[in-house]
Every structure is written in structure tokens, then in C-alpha cells.
Amino acid sequence: MKLHVSSRLAIFALLELAARPEQQLSVAEIGEKYGVSSHHLAKVMHVLGRAGLVRSARGAGGGYQFSGNARRMTLLDVILLFETLESQNHDPAVGELSEEGHALREVMSEIDDIIRATLGSITIATLHKLVRRQRERRPRRTAAAS
């Protein structure tokens, strides 16, 4: 499964903002870290704002601030703002109505269910812990490689 770029940017932005809930970060500051244009990220932030996950402040020191609950907000909640997972796509696929199509659908549903359960069980706070773990492992990996 490959996430839409908007979903990825939304998750990254929420990670940044949730790490500093008292601070406001500009689109440019977040975009710089991930090497993405402010234009694309601004659209993503607008969607997150409409969903009540971030709030914006105008003016010179303006930016975005986290307004969700990092321990409750799952990756699935965020991703569904930007894309539909395969299991929710009801457009008939080629051969869908045949017995073979039904059998194949059963197998693909298994995968979809696992994807939904996985994304629905990882909160922004949990992903933060995983980021920290990566950070702790990286120096060890770098040291081992040198």
C-alpha cells in the first residue's frame, strides 16, 4: 500500500505540531524539513484545519498549532481525510461478479482489513514513540557502519 502524498504530509505536519503543542509552526518551517512546497502543504493544512486537528493563527508570528488529542487521533483518522482505502471503494473491478472475482475479493479484503486495523491502532502519540526509537537506533546504525 502506498499512501497519497497529502496523507503523508498531513501525518508529518501533525507529528511536528503535536511535538510542540504550545508553539505555532509556519507552513514554510514544516515544509522545509520534508522538502515540500509550501503551496502543497498549505492545502493539506487547510483540510486539517477544517477537520479541527489544527488551528491557524494569522499575522506576522502566525502559523499552525495542534488542536487534537495525540493519544486518540489515529493514522486512519488522518488518512481518511485525504483518500479512500481500497476496502471502501465500491466501484466494480474487472471480473468482480464472477466466482473467481469473489474469491479474489475475499483475499484482497483480508489485506484491507489488516491495513485498516494497523492504521487504526497507531495514534500520533504512538508514531512519535516510533520516531524516537528510530532516532535512538540511528546513531548505533551509523556507528556500526563506520
Partner: peptide
Amino acid sequence: ARDNQLHLLFFRSEEMMA
């Protein structure tokens, strides 16, 4: 269980992975 979100969220928050 895949539909037991309470337990899934808890064990995931404890950094347990598949």
C-alpha cells in the same frame, strides 16, 4: 482481535509491532 481497538491501541502505544 483486529476489531478490538482498545487493546490494539494500548499494545501499540507500548511500541509493540506486528
